[in-house]
Amino acid sequence: MEIALETTTAPTINGFELVYKKPSTLTDTPFHYCPGCGHSVVHRLLMEVIEEMGIQEQTVGVAPVGCSVFAYNYMDIDMQEAAHGRASAVATGVKRILPDKFVFSYQGDGDLAAIGTAETIHTVNRGENILMIFINNAIYGMTGGQMAPTTLLKQVTSTSPYGRNKEAMGYPLKITELLAQLPGAYYVSRQAVYNVNSVRKLKKSIEKSFAYQKLNKGTCFIEVVSNCPSGWKMTPVESNKWLEENMFPQYPLGDIKTPKE
């Protein structure tokens, strides 16, 4: 059964019903991410939830400096571009002016857990009613694969060419567990997008977070353990395997703090 390969989103083709298409809240700009990168999967899930909840007009996002610096090219919502490390402070400013809107910040590991550590901790400690999304791929992707705070011991990067050693470069930072201790953290979870199952679970986590945000009970924080095929110098398929074998032991998946309903 030869189907024309150009994309269409016609409701039916030869009697087959449309069951999955790109969410309308994503723009038509193709993603610039490297092949296989988890960033754009998280972008899509975020926009799917915003579409399904019908809150495109109620949501303001804050993009970081890092690979996802161009997030606002893809997300068809009002967005702001923050200075490196400051996305959660910018999001705080937005939320304090627009308390009834949904606000999220989206950051990588260097942005959130290195230069932005103080902003990260204090935003959560104030229990700002925002969703903080944290993409942990254990490397600075945009600048060419340097070591990040979450880089694993012995992991080779462009600035840990002999593998990260704790004597000189300290330990992989489990910022999410740190933040879960803070009373301001209402819902804290660590997810991934390395296979179908994890993608489904992450979407649920995002849905929960937006639902929680309406309750004004504190900060929702989702870490997404993700891959970096280019930085890790692997194919996308290999990177997800490596991630499972090496990242998950250090960064175990699952809800770390869930509200007592």
Partner: peptide, 17 residues
């Protein structure tokens, strides 16, 4: 805020909103 760096970035977000 926790620092002047955070404060000016809150200004950025709030002014932008």
């Amino acid at each position: 805020a926790e620092s002047e760096v955070a404060a000016i970035n809150m200004i950025y977000g709030a002014a932008g909103a």
